[in-house]
Amino acid sequence: MTAAHVPDDEQIVRGWVDGGAEALEQAYRRWGSLVHGLARRAVGPHDAEDVTQQVFVSAWRGRESYDPASGPLGAWLVGITRRRIADLLRSRHRHVEVVTDREDLPDRGSWSEADIDDLITIYEELERIGEPQRGIILLAYVEGLTQREIAERLGLPLGTVKTHTNRTLSRLRTLLGGAR
């Protein structure tokens, strides 16, 4: 892979299925920040590195079980991420430490397991939806851009960005069981 050539998702998947030498690195470059971001939100920054590494090692070792016809590679990796996060959270519950300092108390704004499950479900669905919808939602809700800024960045008409946003949010709302 040359510096100028960035493989698209289909090329990464072909390399992944074939067990190509660069496939793991390409998959990590493409979906590593997604996996790490999910892990960071779910388990915190310290354990997120370990979860991310576990996800990609597990995925590579079990790559024969990935079926491109069943869904995108990114969604498959998010599924593995979900399981690794759940494993870590279960192990935390088995090894509960006694809080001795007020500073060690968990933040009341921390996420519940239900919140984490919802977040992972959303990211899985965004991977399935694909572009430009996935990018629009991430730019709006992760990077905090306005719809006008998203339209300018992606070179899309503002009306198209608004339509994609509304449709995607409606789809996610339905997926999560309506407004909560």
Rank of each mutant, 00 (worst) to 15 (best):
H5W: 05
V6F: 14
P7A: 11
P7D: 03
D8L: 09
E10V: 12
Q11R: 13
Q11P: 05
I12S: 01
I12R: 00
I12W: 00
V13I: 07
V13N: 00
V13M: 09
R14C: 04
W16T: 02
V17P: 01
D18H: 11
E22C: 12
A23H: 00
L24S: 02
R29G: 05
R30H: 14
R30D: 00
R30Q: 05
R30T: 03
W31C: 02
G32C: 04
L34K: 09
V35P: 00
H36D: 09
H36K: 14
G37M: 13
A42M: 10
P45D: 11
P45M: 09
A48N: 09
T52W: 01
T52N: 12
Q53S: 15
F56H: 02
S58A: 12
G62V: 08
G62L: 06
E64N: 09
E64A: 09
E64Y: 14
S65H: 07
Y66G: 05
Y66P: 15
Y66I: 07
G71W: 03
P72S: 15
G74E: 02
I80C: 02
T81Q: 01
T81P: 01
R84K: 06
I85P: 00
L89I: 07
R92H: 15
H93M: 14
R94G: 07
H95P: 06
V96I: 13
E97F: 12
R102T: 08
R102G: 15
S112Y: 15
D118N: 04
D118Q: 15
D118L: 08
L119R: 12
L119P: 01
L119I: 03
I120E: 00
I122G: 02
L126E: 01
E127S: 14
I129G: 00
Q133V: 04
Q133W: 12
R134L: 05
R134D: 01
L138H: 04
L139I: 12
Y141A: 10
V142H: 13
T146C: 11
Q147A: 10
E149H: 03
I150W: 00
E152C: 13
L154N: 13
L154V: 14
G159E: 11
T165Y: 13
R171S: 08
L175A: 04
L176E: 07
A179C: 07
